[in-house]
C-alpha cells in the first residue's frame, strides 16, 4: 500500500536564512554562501500494508513530520521514492484552511475542497458535518465571530468526515470541552478501525500502544526499528 524505498531528504540550509536579494548578493560577494547539509531523513525504507494502523515515534527532530510530508507528496525526496495507491488525506492542523470572513457553511465547502473531497461527497455529508460540530444555529455567520472552541469543533468535524484510503494524523485531535473531546476521540478510533490505512504521529506512547498495529521508530532521520507495537514501545521507553 505504501512503500518507501531508501528515502533521503536533505535540506540545504544556508548558515543564515537569506531572504532578500541584497543579503544574497552580499553573501555571494563575501563568499559566505555556505550551505549546511542537514539530513532530515536518511535512507528510510519500510512497507505498510492496506488497513494497517502504523505509529511513528521518535524524539523531536527525528524526522516524523518530514516523513509525513514525503508520503503526502508535499515534499519530494532527494533520493529514493515513495509509491502508494489510493488517495491520501491529511488531518490538517485544525482550522488552517479557514477563511475567517466566510460563514461556517462556506468554510465547510472551502476546507473540504482543500482536503480533496468531491463536491457530491460534501453535499451528501454536509448535514452530518454540521450535526457533529453542534453548530447548526451559527452556520451562517462568519467564522471570525466564532469562539476558538467552535472553530476547533467545526474544523474537526470537516476533517474527520473522510473515508480516505490513507489517513495521515499528526497528533490525535482531541478538542473542545470534555464531552466533545470524548466524542472526537471516539470518532478518531472509529475512523481508524474502518479498514483505512493510518499513519499516526504521537508523543503519547499510551495512545500508540492502544491504537497501532505496528510502529516505526525514527531517530535523527534514520529508522531505528520497525515492528510489533508493544516491543518497540518498550524499547523506546527504556532507551534512556
Amino acid at each position: 500500500m505504501i512503500q518507501a524505498d531508501h528515502v533521503t531528504v536533505c535540506y540545504r540550509m544556508p548558515h543564515d536564512r537569506i531572504q532578500s536579494i541584497k543579503e544574497y548578493l552580499v553573501a555571494l560577494i563575501k563568499r559566505k554562501l555556505q550551505y549546511e547539509e542537514f539530513y532530515a531523513l536518511r535512507d528510510v525504507s519500510f512497507e505498510i500494508r492496506k488497513g494497517e494502523v502504523v505509529g511513528l515515534i521518535g524524539d523531536n527532530g527525528a524526522g516524523k513530520s518530514t516523513l509525513l510530508k514525503v508520503i503526502s507528496g508535499i515534499l519530494k525526496p532527494a533520493e529514493g521514492s515513495v509509491s502508494l495507491q489510493g488517495n491520501v488525506v491529511p488531518m490538517l492542523e485544525l482550522g488552517s484552511g479557514f477563511d475567517y470572513d466566510l460563514t461556517g457553511r462556506e468554510n465547510i465547502f472551502l476546507n473540504g475542497a482543500i482536503l480533496g473531497y468531491s463536491e457530491a461527497f460534501l453535499k451528501e455529508k454536509y448535514d452530518e458535518i454540521v450535526a457533529f460540530s453542534e453548530l447548526a444555529e451559527f452556520i451562517d455567520i462568519p467564522v471570525r465571530n466564532y469562539s476558538s472552541g467552535m472553530i476547533m469543533r467545526l474544523a474537526f468535524s470537516i476533517a474527520s468526515m473522510v473515508s480516505p484510503d490513507i489517513l495521515i494524523v499528526d497528533e490525535i485531535l482531541a478538542v473542545g470541552d470534555a464531552s466533545f473531546q470524548e466524542k472526537s476521540y471516539a470518532r478518531m478510533t472509529e475512523l481508524m478501525s474502518h479498514g483505512t490505512t493510518v499513519l499516526l504521529v504521537s508523543h503519547n506512547i499510551e495512545q500508540i500502544r492502544r491504537l497501532c498495529d505496528r510502529v516505526i521508530w525514527l531517530d535523527h532521520g534514520r529508522v531505528v526499528a520497525v515492528g510489533d507495537t508493544q516491543e518497540i514501545c518498550d524499547r523506546y521507553a527504556n532507551k534512556g
Binding site: 477563511d99 470572513d101 466566510l102 472551502l110 475542497a113 482543500i114 480533496g116 468531491s118
Partner: peptide, 18 residues
C-alpha cells in the same frame, strides 16, 4: 476544478465582504 471554484468563490466573496 471543485477546489478552484471554491478558491475563486472565496476570493470574490471576501473581496467586498465588509
Amino acid at each position: 476544478n471543485f477546489l478552484i471554484r471554491q478558491l475563486v468563490a472565496r476570493d470574490f466573496k471576501t473581496k467586498y465582504k465588509r
